[in-house]
């Protein structure tokens, strides 16, 4: 791969049922590129958690995936309410999700910790009232 490959997605914030479609597509694309299955799984789980977060907390956003020779990078951007306390949000079990979200199987306070667990680099830039940008990278060994 001489040049980086880019995939761009718009994540619909209105439809919980379709949440995760971008991650499914990325998984297919990375398979076609022939990346190792462990790398593909880590990228797709981290992106899927991010996509779900965007739908349940931020009303949707955009996702960009860049594939370079050395790593797969996921950039998530939303114009949601922002994260008040990032350190607190990173703790396993902490969640601001409502009971209705929990009844859908999410909001256990594992989303952000899972994103960190499956990636080699993760950075959160969040501004209250403006939105959240998340950058994640999974190294290709």
């Amino acid at each position: 791969m001489a040049e980086a490959l880019n995939f761009h997605f718009i994540v619909d914030g209105e439809d919980f049922t379709s949440a995760g479609q971008a991650s499914v597509q990325v998984k297919k694309n990375l398979r076609q590129l022939g990346l190792p299955s462990e790398i593909i799984r880590r990228v797709s789980i981290a992106m899927y958690e991010g996509e779900i977060n965007m739908v349940i907390h931020a009303g949707g956003g955009t996702a960009d995936v860049n594939v370079t020779e050395d790593y797969v990078e996921i950039l998530l951007k939303d114009n949601g309410p922002g994260i008040k306390d990032v350190e607190q949000a990173m703790q396993e079990g902490f969640s601001t999700a409502t009971d209705s979200i929990r009844s859908l199987g999410f909001g256990a306070g594992m989303g952000l910790p899972n994103m960190k667990r499956y990636t080699d680099f993760m950075k959160i830039d969040s501004v209250l009232g403006k939105g959240t940008d998340i950058t994640m990278r999974v190294n290709i060994e």
């Binding site: 919980f16 799984r41 859908l104 256990a108 594992m110």
Partner: peptide, 30 residues
Amino acid sequence: MMSDVLAYVKDQAVLLTGLVNSQVIRTAEM
């Protein structure tokens, strides 16, 4: 809770759940 499922990693596993929505299938796929 699908995020609890996503915290565990292993090939060729079976998921047992009482949750019924499309995210169950996507979680298994991921």
